[in-house]
Every structure is written in structure tokens, then in C-alpha cells.
Design a protein around this nucleic acid. Structure first.
Lengths: 241, 241
DNA sequence: CCGATTAATATGTCTATACATAATTCCATG
DNA sequence: CATGGAATTATGTATAGACATATTAATCGG
């Protein structure tokens, strides 16, 4: 059942975790220095450093030079949400992926997107992704033509912008927001539901360094939810079986 | 404006990142081995390892023994969402935090929570958190008394279970889900809105090893949204200024 | 008593080397 | 040709030692 007892830096990580949990080291407590722990565990300081650094990245420890390492007061739990490409998300769930482009036009973006894309004309796309024929998510996207001029000649009728952009205009960083909204008339019709129905929405902006690439709103069909785990020290992708 | 050019493993990370982005190393490409890169950059292999491991943890590289390191086909963007204590979340936004316990009872949990907490009696709490007097979120919680017997004698009238549990029953791991829901009649009244209004909901289960601690549903007032960043290689807490 | 300088210290990082481990490749054998 | 196993190889981890850096603590001068 339980695998073999971990060796090396993971063993140290587990022991430190145990002490935090057992309240040997309560929140706020300054734990022994790396040198002391290395002596106690009979290993090199670098090994202790590896273990403590991982715990600090996970938010359980706070480390500062000279001040030492202390147990975090507020164990800020971080949930790591994976945002896959829509096609993969659907196919991974074992459904048949469907895509249809609903609108493709050049226009000055409205107030929201304009604030990030600028006033110049941008490419506006509306598309519907479906799973096993059932509507899954409505994609409402604005693409900056100054940042991605190649988008001007891309048809987006077979391959969604969601995938095309990843291949032709990778982003360096982005911003994402999750919210609950009421389905508009048009969204409701596309999603085969009633106007005003609560729907899960993702609003995302992606950048290439300082240039905004695209602003997209994803309106998911009712019932959609995002799952994630928190805490699990074995944040290993393989562990998510 | 831009700080000094990074030295050490971060410089290597930046250069690798640049090559990925510049398509010198397109998605799927197997990049040179650590030994080669170490020679090229004139540093130790451990330094290259540090840089590549960080990029792999960020999801941009896929590493396998013997097979080598390749640029990820699907740059699975991970958004790290921080889940603070509600009081902190409100106070950090500069608002006055308010809390009121609405209900506290012992009862067998309904179907949903029962699946994780078991059939035995559990503590049921309903509470409202407010910001500057305005309703912020409704907390609907079930606490396992077999896992946390001390909860039986806690009043929860001044300190919310949200905070009490962190202090007296820390969790090892958990599961969290985000969704959009229609406000029920009672929720709508508490949140000063109309029934059926779309509201953002968080459902969370936390565990202490194999024993479930609590199941909680947080129903946020309309307009609530969760923000996060993706990609940003400087996932340093201090950078979030 | 306060402020500026200096010393002390814990973490951060790098190096060189070594061995461990997983996976692929290749080859001998049936 | 299939197949089992050994050689190969790239990453994973550990080590001791060294220097860098950020901060706190101590010390000195006014």
C-alpha cells in the first residue's frame, strides 16, 4: 500500500512536515538552522536546503536570510489550477471534440478589451466548442493584430484560435479570472439553456513581454466546475492518477 | 527600470526561456543535455539542473531520464490561486471585516457531505462574512466530530470555523472546486440579492491524512471573482506588489 | 539616547565529483 | 523474428567546501 520510506531530501521534507503537523514546531516558530538540521539528519546542508526550499515554495515555511526559517503563520493554501487547451480538456474526458467558428470580423474592440489591446482594429472571433455534440463553451476573443499580424490571414474555421495562438503566438505571461455570470441571450442560445442561467466564466489576457496578444472570455455550459488539489506535497504530475 | 541582468541559474533559465520563445527550440524539441549546456554556459551541471528543473516544474519542459529534456508540446499553463483566510482576504482589500454565526447544530450530514464525512453526527455551521457591513460570503460547513472532537465545545460565535480550524485542526491536503451557481432563497436573502442570481461558489474538502476534517461551501456575493497570474516565471511572492 | 558603522550569521548559490536510477538501445540467444 | 537482458546514457540526488548576500545585532561616536 504505502510505498517504501522515502530517502534523501524527501525524507527530510516529510519529517519537517510531521513536526509542523504535530505542533512540535507551531506556526511562527523559528526552526533550527540548516547546519543544525544537517547535523541532526546526518546529511549535507544542501540536502536540508533542498527540502526546506521546497516547503517554502509550497507556502508552509517562510525563509529570510539571517532571520532563519519559520513556520508560516497563515498557511496560505495555494491551489494549482491546470488550464489545458479546450480540445484536450474535452478529449481527456473521453468525449468527441467539436468546434465551429461563429463570427470572424475586424473591428475596434469595445471598452473592456480596448483597455489592454489599444484602440486600433483587432480581430474579433466568436466560436463554440462542443463535447459529444453538446455545447461546452462559448469563446469570445479579441486578438491584437499589431502583436500578431499573422492572425489576419488565419481562417480559424478548422483550428480554433485557442490552439492556433499557442502555436504561432506563445505568451510569456498572462492574467486569468474566474467568475460567475448570467448567460446573455446569445450565450444562452448557443449553450442550449435559458437566458440568465448562472454560467462559469473565465476571462484571460495573455502577453508577449509588454505587448498584449489576446483577450478572451470563455463562457462554459451550466454545471461546469474547475477542480484542483491543495496542499498535497506530492505535487508530482504522475501522482494525479 | 529593468533590474541588473540576472546571474547564476536564473540567467540560464532566462536564456533557455528565450530560446523556447524565439523558436530556436520549438515545442517537442529535445534540447541539449545538461552536460552540454553546462559546458556552453561555463558553469557546473548542478546549476543547469537547477534552471531546467524550475522550468520543468513550471510546465514548460518535460524531463525524463535517459530520454532527455524536451520543450513541452502543450505548455500547460498553471494558474496558482491563493486561498487566504476570509478575514485576511477582506482586510487585505482594506475593508472592515465582519462575522456572524447564523446557525450551529449537531446533525447527520446530508448526502453530499456524508459521502466524505461518514454517516455519524457532524457539526453544522452557517455563517456570514461581511466587508464594510456588506455581505461578502455565506459559509455553509460540516465538521467531522470524530476527526475534530474539540469542535464540539467551540462556540464559533466570535471566531469563524474558517480560522479556528486552521489553528486547531490543520489539514494535510484538500480538494477544491470552483463553480457558478444560482443563489438559493436563503442565500439570496443573506447576500442581499435576488434568488437565482448567479453566484460564485467554492466547495472545499480538507483532510488530515486519511480522515476528513470538514466540508465547506462558500457562496460569494454577486460580482466576486478570483484572479491569478499564469506563466510569470517570477513566481516570487515579493513580486506581487 | 540616537544614529551610523561594523561584525556576526543564516540562507542563497556555485563548484566538482560521485553514485543512483530510470529508460532507451542494442545484442545475443532461443 | 521475438525476447530477455546487458550496456549505455541523461537526469536525479548527494556531498563537502566555498563564497555571496541580506539582515539582524552589536558597537562606537556624537
Amino acid at each position: 500500500m504505502s510505498g517504501p520510506p522515502p530517502k534523501g531530501w524527501q525524507a527530510i521534507q516529510d519529517e519537517v512536515l510531521r513536526r509542523i503537523h504535530a505542533r512540535d514546531w507551531p506556526p511562527g516558530h523559528v526552526i533550527p538552522g540548516e547546519v543544525d538540521l544537517a547535523r541532526e539528519f546526518g546529511c549535507a546542508r544542501a540536502t536540508v536546503n533542498r527540502a526546506l526550499r521546497a516547503l517554502a515554495e509550497a507556502g508552509l515555511l517562510e525563509r529570510r536570510r539571517k532571520a532563519g526559517t519559520r513556520v508560516a503563520l497563515h498557511p496560505v493554501s495555494r491551489a494549482t489550477v491546470e488550464i489545458p487547451v479546450i480540445r484536450r480538456e474535452i478529449e481527456d474526458r473521453g468525449h468527441a471534440y467539436g468546434y465551429s467558428l461563429l463570427e470572424r470580423s475586424l473591428a475596434p474592440p469595445p471598452a473592456g478589451p480596448r483597455a489592454t489591446l489599444g484602440p486600433g482594429p483587432a480581430l474579433h472571433l466568436t466560436a463554440l466548442h462542443s463535447a459529444d455534440g453538446a455545447p461546452y463553451v462559448v469563446e469570445d476573443r479579441w486578438i491584437s493584430l499589431s502583436t500578431v499580424p499573422a492572425a489576419h490571414d488565419a481562417p480559424f474555421d478548422r483550428v480554433s484560435a485557442n490552439e492556433w495562438l499557442l502555436a504561432y503566438a506563445p505568451f510569456t505571461h498572462g492574467d486569468i479570472a474566474f467568475s460567475a455570470e448570467a448567460a446573455s441571450d446569445s450565450q444562452a442560445e448557443l449553450l442550449s439553456t435559458a437566458p440568465g442561467t448562472p454560467v462559469f466564466a473565465i476571462t484571460r489576457v495573455t502577453w508577449d513581454h509588454t505587448r498584449a496578444i489576446t483577450v478572451v472570455r470563455l463562457i462554459y455550459a451550466p454545471g461546469y466546475s474547475i477542480h484542483s488539489v491543495i496542499g498535497g506535497m506530492s505535487a508530482d504530475p504522475r501522482a494525479a492518477s
